[in-house]
Nucleic acid binder design. Structure first.
Length: 356
DNA sequence: TTCCGGAAAA
DNA sequence: TTTTCCGGAA
């Protein structure tokens, strides 16, 4: 690396003109970014695109303008508002973190202090420290890894290359405007130094890029071979009873932890029984892909003929499919509440209420 | 269909 | 250190 300060200076000149305008951002050169908004946006942006986050960010900040407001929210409402964003452990950690920050009287202003909070790891702690508190921390996300791998032609495959890329990115971090530098690196990666077909011709630091000089920019960063995903199967039951539908809240730990769901089997063929007696009929199969496996889920629909052993019946008028994670929304899209077998098919004398 | 992307638990 | 956690875009 010839002169890191020249590279960062040229990057900041570009950022001053081309910074993305985002709801949680202060313009280039600005100060006073709200740590709450920076934190909330960064947690939402973990493993999630800017486009997907925008609407959720607006909704959360409308409902809960301050971290104290969020700390006082009901768990179920936060989970319902997060539904559809994925990686639901983030939502549970978000609430735990808000309550910890409220107890502390505000956000810690250092990377170390921030990293001690739930859901805040190396990336998010550095990002909040740099962007909200102007600390000279190095922020390394997927964009920064890619930019550094190309600028310095790092051939080591990820994730083994991570420490090397972090060290190179640290040398690039300037003592002045570290927050803008971090956001400039990420904007460069998101808009120009993209994973496929990078726009090297308009890159503000192309003169310094070793990968471009060797013609291998689009091939970096290299990645370790990924292992194939197994296909698993399971069954989900959507039960109706007198204008109500049977749902449950999944256990906090594990897949889709803490989300609203229809009762289902485990995902490895574990032979769990139906949650209630009913005239179950298969109405289709939905396929859903998780990080490390794909799932074919058989969807059963039926009208209850007895008490449910799992779940709670909620009125269809109060049932909001948007509170479901993607997998359960797919299953729900197959259901036909109005054509579920009519009440006249039910056993006479069976109670229509039940308590789990 | 493949690729992309942070934190926590194991 | 490896594995477990989703949904959107290319």
């Amino acid at each position: 690396m010839r002169d890191p300060l020249v590279i960062s200076a040229e990057l900041l000149v570009w950022y001053d003109r081309h910074a993305r305008v985002l709801p949680w951002r202060v313009p280039p050169g600005g100060t006073g970014a709200d740590p709450y908004r920076v934190w909330l946006s960064e947690v939402m942006l973990q493993q999630t695109t800017v486009a997907a986050v925008k609407a959720y960010f607006e909704r959360f900040t409308l409902l809960w303008p301050t971290v104290q407001d969020l700390a006082g929210a009901e768990d179920a409402q936060v989970m319902a508002e997060w539904a559809g964003l994925g990686y639901y452990a983030r939502a549970r950690n978000l609430l735990a973190c808000a309550r910890a920050v409220a107890d502390l009287g505000g956000f810690p202003a250092t990377r170390e202090g921030l990293a001690a909070l739930p859901g805040i790891g190396p990336y998010t702690s550095a990002a909040i420290a740099a962007i909200a508190f102007d600390q000279p921390e190095t922020v390394v996300d997927g964009n920064v890894e890619r930019v550094a791998a190309r600028l310095f032609a790092v051939e080591t495959p990820l994730p083994a290359a991570k420490p090397e890329l972090t060290a190179l990115a640290a040398r690039l971090t300037p003592p002045q405007r570290p927050g803008d530098h971090a956001q400039a690196m990420m904007d460069l990666g998101a808009t120009i130094c993209t994973p496929r077909s990078p726009a090297c011709g308009i890159c503000p630091v192309m003169a310094h890029c070793e990968a471009r000089a060797s013609g291998i920019a689009a091939d970096l960063p290299r990645k370790a071979a990924k292992k194939p995903k197994p296909l698993r199967q399971g069954t989900v039951w959507i039960g109706f009873d007198a204008g109500r539908v049977l749902v449950e809240t999944r256990p906090d730990k594990g897949l889709l932890g803490g989300t609203l769901a229809f009762p289902s089997t485990g995902w490895d063929g574990s032979a769990l029984a139906a949650p209630a007696p009913a005239d179950w009929q298969e109405i289709g199969i939905v396929r859903h892909v998780f990080t490390h496996f794909a799932l074919d889920l058989a969807v059963m629909q039926g009208r209850l003929t007895g008490n449910a052993e799992r779940g709670t019946l909620v009125a269809l008028d109060d049932f909001r499919p948007t509170a479901l994670p993607g997998l359960m929304r797919k299953a729900w899209s197959l259901a036909r509440p109005e054509t579920a077998s009519p009440a006249t098919m039910r056993h006479a004398g069976k109670p229509s209420t039940n308590t789990p």
